[in-house]
């Protein structure tokens, strides 16, 4: 690594910061999946199938979340429908 490369590198984001960003997103995603009950993944797929009977949607357009508050749990379903 010479001084020339050093300044050249400065122009694009350093690879370590790319790595950190990717890891932060991935780890947050994997942690939220870990904290879900085991049936969530299967339920998500089945809900997706039901929706697909009527509208054509991708997996990424269906978002399911389980929020636990003190006295109840809320199942939140967000579907982005195509125009």
């Amino acid at each position: 690594m010479s001084i020339f490369n050093y300044f050249l590198n400065k122009r694009q984001p350093a690879s370590a910061s790319v790595a950190k960003e990717r890891l932060q997103i991935l780890v947050a995603h994997e942690r939220s999946r870990r904290s879900q009950p085991d049936y969530m993944e299967k339920m998500q797929l089945e809900i997706l199938e039901v929706i697909r009977k009527y509208v054509e949607v991708d997996q990424e357009q269906v978002n399911i979340r389980l929020d636990n508050s003190d006295d109840c749990s809320i199942l939140e379903l967000n579907v982005t429908l195509p125009d």
Binding site: A19, L23, Q24, V27
Partner: peptide, 13 residues
């Protein structure tokens, strides 16, 4: 030189 995750990066994650 930004080629490797730092201690702080790993601790943060």
């Amino acid at each position: 030189i930004g080629e490797m995750l730092s201690v702080e990066d790993v601790k943060d994650i």
